[in-house]
Design a protein around this nucleic acid. Structure first.
Length: 489
DNA sequence: GAGTTTGAAACT
DNA sequence: CAGTTTCAAACTC
C-alpha cells in the first residue's frame, strides 16, 4: 500500500526541532468568512483551491502551516484542502520511508487551535494535523483564518464575496476512480499515514470566478475560463509535486508558470528518475520496485524535486492523465495527445488508446489504424474476446457445479461410511477408481460425438454417467463395509 | 524466463 | 519539429 505522507502545502521546516506539519482535513470546518451568499463548485478532498477576486481584497484560507500550528490568513484567498488520498492509476504499492504503518500514537488537541489536532505518527518524519471543528454555522464577515473556514465533506462550502459565486462540496477522493483506481482504506473521518497521491486544483491566474463542476475532475484537467470570467484556468496536478516544489511558505500557487521559473536546473542527469518510471510519472515514490539505483525516494528528495521540476519545465502536462474528455460529438473519453502507433494497427496494448479501451480519435497520428468503430478487425477482436470470456465463465461455472456436487455427495455419505469402520469416504476414490470414472465419462463423450448429439445432450449423457459412477463407488463402499464387518476386520 | 517488438518519452 | 535514442511494457516462443 502506498504510505506516502500527506503533502505539504507550505514550506517544510528546516532540519531543526520541528518536523514539517501537514494537515489532513477529515471533517469539515466552518469559516466565518464563508457565507451562504456564495457557493463554490465541488472540490475533491485533497486539492488546493486558490482564488482571487478582483472585487474583494485577496484573502487566504490556508489549512497548513509549516512552522507552527497556527493557521494563517494571507493575501491570495487560498483554500488549501490538503491531502487525503486520491486513488492512482498506478497499481504498484508505493510507500515512503519513515512511515511504516497507519497507527497513530496520539492525537493531541492543540491549545492554540481548538479545531486542530496534532497527530503523532511513530517513526514518521512528519507531523500530521487534523482539523476537526464543525461547529459554527456560516456567518458573514471576513475570514480571519482557517479556524473559521467551512469545508463540509460532500456538502457545499459557501464563500461570500461581493461578486463571486462559488460552490465547493468537498467530495470523497473515491470519485477519481477513473484517474487513479487505488482502493481507499479510510473514510473522511479516518486519518491514516497511508497515501497514494494528492491532487491540487489551483488557478493558473488569480480567479475572479471558480468554475463549476469540479466534481470528478481527473488530475490534469484544465478548466477553461467561463464566458466573461476573465482569463482564468485551473490545472489539476499531483499535489506533492506542487507542494514539494514550493520553497518559501505560502508561495502563491496561482500561476502554473511558477513551475517553469527556473532555478538554474537546465538538464537532468540520467538518473533512474524520469518519465520512464511509472511510479514517478504517477507522482509516487518507488517502493518494492525492481529498479536499480532508484532516486525516486525520500533519500534522494533533492534530485527528485529537480527531476519533477525538469519534467514540468519540459512539459507542463507531464503529470496529467492521458485519457481525457473529447470534444463535443466525439466519444466521452479520448487520448489527450493521441497515439502514434505504426505497426500494431492500434489493436494491441502497445497502443495507449486500445489499452484504455477507447477508439483512436482525430488527434491520433497512428499509421494503419484499425481501432475505430467500424473496423472489421476490431470487431473480430472484440468478438473473440467476448467468446473467450464466455468460455471462461462457462468453465468456471461447470467446475463450481461439479465440486459442489462432489462435496455434497461426500457430505451425505460420510456419516454412513465413517460411522462403522472409521474409513473416510475418499479412501474409496482411489487413483484407479478415478481413472476408471474418467474413462467412463470420456466414453460417453465419444458416444455423444459419434452420434452427433447436441452439446446439451452430450453434457446430459456425461453427467448421467458420472452419476452412475458415483453410485457404483458408493455401492462398492457399502459392500466393502459390510464385508469388512462380517469378517470383523 | 529469455528474447523480441513496440511506442512513449527523452534527447539531439 | 523531425529524427534518434532510451526505456519499460507488451508480446512471443
Amino acid at each position: 500500500p502506498c504510505l506516502v505522507p500527506a503533502p505539504e502545502i507550505a514550506k517544510k521546516t528546516p532540519a531543526s526541532s520541528a518536523a514539517p506539519i501537514k494537515f489532513i482535513i477529515t471533517k469539515t470546518v466552518n469559516s466565518k468568512g464563508i457565507s451562504a451568499q456564495t457557493s463554490m463548485p465541488p472540490v475533491i478532498t485533497g486539492r488546493v483551491l486558490t482564488q482571487s477576486s478582483p472585487v474583494m481584497p485577496p484573502r487566504t484560507i490556508t489549512l497548513s502551516e509549516p512552522h507552527n500550528t497556527n493557521l494563517q490568513s494571507i493575501p491570495g484567498k487560498k483554500i488549501a484542502i490538503s491531502p487525503l488520498k486520491t486513488p492512482s492509476k498506478n497499481i504498484k504499492p508505493v510507500a515512503v520511508g519513515g512511515v511504516g504503518g497507519s497507527q497513530f500514537k496520539t492525537i493531541i488537541p492543540l491549545a492554540t487551535q481548538p479545531n486542530v489536532q496534532q497527530i503523532q505518527v511513530p517513526g514518521s518524519r512528519f507531523h500530521y494535523v487534523r482539523l476537526v471543528t464543525a461547529t459554527t454555522a456560516s456567518s458573514t464577515g471576513q475570514p480571519s483564518g482557517p479556524s473559521t473556514s467551512s469545508i463540509q465533506t460532500a456538502k457545499p462550502m459557501v464563500v461570500s464575496t461581493a461578486a463571486v459565486r462559488m460552490s465547493v462540496p468537498v467530495v470523497p477522493a473515491q470519485t477519481m476512480k477513473q484517474v487513479a483506481p487505488k482502493p481507499l482504506t479510510s473514510g473522511p473521518q479516518v486519518v491514516t499515514t497511508t497515501q497514494t497521491q494528492q491532487r491540487l486544483i489551483m488557478p493558473a491566474t488569480p480567479l475572479p470566478q471558480i468554475q463549476p463542476n469540479f466534481t470528478n475532475l481527473p488530475p490534469g484537467t484544465v478548466l477553461t475560463p467561463a464566458p466573461g470570467g476573465g482569463n482564468v484556468g485551473y490545472a489539476v496536478v499531483p499535489a506533492q509535486y506542487v507542494t514539494q516544489i514550493q520553497q518559501p511558505p505560502f508561495v502563491t500557487l496561482a500561476s502554473s508558470s511558477s513551475f517553469s521559473a527556473s532555478t538554474g536546473i537546465q538538464t537532468q542527469a540520467r538518473l533512474p528518475l524520469n518519465g520512464y518510471c511509472d511510479c514517478f510519472a504517477n507522482g509516487e515514490f518507488c517502493n518494492n520496485c525492481n529498479c536499480n539505483n532508484c532516486f525516486n525516494n525520500l533519500e534522494h528528495e533533492t534530485e527528485r524535486l529537480k527531476a519533477i521540476k525538469t519534467c514540468l519545465d519540459r512539459n507542463p502536462e507531464a503529470f496529467k492523465p492521458k485519457i481525457g474528455k473529447g470534444k463535443e460529438g466525439e466519444s466521452d473519453r479520448r487520448h489527450s495527445k493521441g497515439c502514434n502507433c505504426k505497426r500494431s494497427g492500434c489493436l494491441k496494448n502497445y497502443c495507449e488508446c486500445y489499452e484504455a479501451k477507447i477508439m483512436c480519435s482525430s488527434i491520433c497520428k497512428c499509421i494503419g489504424c484499425k481501432n475505430f468503430e467500424e473496423s472489421p478487425e476490431r470487431k473480430t477482436l472484440m468478438h473473440l474476446a467476448d467468446a473467450a470470456e464466455v468460455r471462461v465463465q462457462q468453465q468456471t461455472a461447470a467446475k463450481t457445479k461439479l465440486s459442489s456436487q462432489i462435496s455434497d455427495l461426500l457430505m451425505r455419505t460420510t456419516p454412513v461410511i465413517s460411522s462403522g469402520s472409521g474409513r473416510l469416504p475418499y479412501t474409496f476414490v482411489t487413483k484407479e477408481v478415478l481413472e476408471a470414472t474418467c474413462e467412463c465419462l470420456l466414453e460417453q463423450a465419444k458416444k455423444a460425438e459419434q452420434t452427433h448429439q447436441p452439446q446439451v445432450e452430450a453434457e446430459r449423457m456425461i453427467l448421467e454417467e458420472f452419476g452412475h459412477c458415483l453410485m457404483r463407488i458408493i455401492s462398492s463402499a457399502g459392500k466393502a463395509k459390510s464385508d469388512c464387518a462380517s469378517i470383523n476386520c
